[in-house]
């Protein structure tokens, strides 16, 4: 092999970059970490079901929130009827956060895990005081 030192160095850099997830997980030891969002329900009787099924909420809650935002702000539509017939007020702070009363233990868990920035919501909407 010719120019071995340079080429091997190059290949090593490539290998390290290409396998960086492995080294990083070894270094942090966080590879099997999974977020465990906790739901701390405020005392709101009768609202023990979410507005939409969990599967949908896990992947697409931002769609719902965006939809709520637009219909409330632009159209003044504030009522939401869930697929199973319950009626809710479309409100992040006043409906969602009634049940998911603990932003750090609920929202932040996954949002941090997935590095999803939610400042766009929380720079205006007020997160509930965490009492626990």
């Amino acid at each position: 092999m010719y120019d071995a030192s340079k080429i091997i160095l190059g290949i090593l850099i490539f290998l390290v970059l290409a396998t960086s997830p492995f080294w990083y997980s070894k270094a942090t030891g966080q590879s099997d970490y999974l977020p465990d969002p906790v739901i701390l329900t405020k005392d709101t009787p009768g609202k023990d079901v979410c507005v939409m099924p969990t599967d949908y909420m896990r992947s697409s809650h931002m769609d719902l929130l965006n939809d709520w935002r637009n219909s409330v702000v632009r159209d003044g539509e504030r009522k939401f009827v869930s697929p199973n017939g319950h009626e809710y007020k479309k409100s992040l702070s006043n409906t969602c956060m009634d049940c998911h009363a603990n932003k750090t233990e609920f929202c932040d868990k996954c949002h941090n895990y997935m590095a999803v920035d939610d400042q766009t919501c929380w720079s205006c909407h007020v997160e509930p005081k965490e009492e626990l």
Binding site: P21, Y24, S25, T28, Q30, Y113, M114
Partner: peptide, 8 residues
Amino acid sequence: LRFFFEPV
């Protein structure tokens, strides 16, 4: 890489 690195 956010899918591969924890913490990100």
